[in-house]
């Protein structure tokens, strides 16, 4: 056996100690910078490759064309277009959201992330209603989270990379049939006011109502980042007044639909549709709460059979 003696046999090299902070900064910088760089560079690459393959004559023609084009541009176009402004606004919004997120403490991040992941909703093309993560089993939730990049940080990165990113206000949300800004924002019908006498309701339902109110409060002054993700689905990412992402809606083709995911209008997925299973397998639903301004009492909870199509 050939043997080679290391000249460093008795020398202990230095350990690499903590690098977490630098690593985190670099990752943020890399992913933040990419969008801007890639657009410019993709264009540059195409130009470079074409120019490299051109004959001398074609190069001269191209040069003359570019020169004329340059004259036209400099003579006629100054100042940003509306599209530039909208794009800049979207870009600034996502930067603020990133900045806000990275500046949170670990506890705040974890709390926001937990809240966000429960507020990711999805709707396939043939559905009328959005489905909520809360309607899925643990295993299905994980799969859907993976498919839809349901983590907050992933969502920001996804939004930033989108070519068609735009910002819209709650009032501009083009979703018909919803009540109020928050309702439009959420893509569902929502209560105008908190039901009275909620103390008569079961504790879990009270919790959901309170949660609902918190969501609504979050969305009152919200704005929304709309874009198309890499799977071609339309995504609406809701930011609250502090630029913290608080909701995500994904609409489109879910070819990776998980087993057991509710299908069709009014399936088990309405985010405000909470249910309790009875011993005979039927379910109790509180969809009455969805009625505009209605007070909710125990009597409002009605029994429905699993799979029954809910009216909208």
């Amino acid at each position: 056996m050939n043997k080679e003696i290391s000249p460093f046999n008795t020398i202990t090299p230095p350990r690499v100690t903590r690098t977490r902070s630098h690593k985190r900064r670099l990752k943020v910088a890399l992913l933040t910078a990419h969008e801007q760089q890639s657009r410019v560079q993709s264009f540059g690459r195409i130009i470079n490759e074409n120019v490299r393959n051109m004959s001398l004559g074609k190069k001269s023609t191209a040069l003359a064309t570019v020169a004329v084009f340059g004259l036209v541009v400099t003579a006629g176009v100054f100042g940003p277009t509306a599209s530039d402004v909208a794009q800049a606004e979207a870009s600034n919004t996502i930067k603020r959201a990133f900045a806000r997120f990275v500046n949170l403490t670990d506890e705040e991040k974890a709390s926001l992330e937990d809240q966000f992941q429960d507020r990711v909703h999805f709707r396939s093309e043939d559905d009328h209603l959005f489905h909520g993560m809360a309607d899925l089993s643990e295993a299905d939730r994980e799969t859907m989270h993976e498919n839809m990049k349901a983590s907050l940080a992933d969502s920001l990165v996804e939004a930033q990379a989108a070519a068609d990113l735009e910002v819209v206000s709650a009032n501009e949300m083009p979703l018909p049939g919803f009540i109020g800004n928050a309702g439009r924002a959420l893509g569902i019908k929502m209560m105008h006011k908190l039901p009275e006498n909620i103390e008569n309701l079961p504790a879990d339902i009270q919790d959901r109502i309170k949660e609902h109110e918190a969501m609504r409060a979050d969305m009152e002054s919200a704005k929304f980042l709309k874009y198309t993700n890499t799977d071609g689905q339309q995504v609406t990412l809701g930011l609250n007044a502090n630029d913290e992402p608080v909701f995500k809606f994904v609409e489109g083709d879910f070819s990776l639909r998980v087993p057991g995911m509710p299908i069709g209008p009014g399936g088990a997925g309405h985010m405000m549709e909470w249910r309790e299973k009875n011993a005979d397998g039927s379910e109790r639903s509180t969809r009455h709460i969805m009625r505009e301004g209605g007070n909710v009492t125990q009597e409002d909870i009605q029994i429905i059979v699993p799979g029954e199509v809910l009216e909208q």
Binding site: T17, R18, T19, R20, S21, H22, R24, R25, V28, A29, T32, A33, N92, K95, R96, F98, A99, V102, N103
Partner: peptide
């Protein structure tokens, strides 16, 4: 330039 402020300057220096 990207408008991102990171508040863990102290961690970074410690590292």
């Amino acid at each position: 330039t990207s408008g991102i402020e990171i508040s863990d300057e102290r961690d970074m220096l410690e590292e």
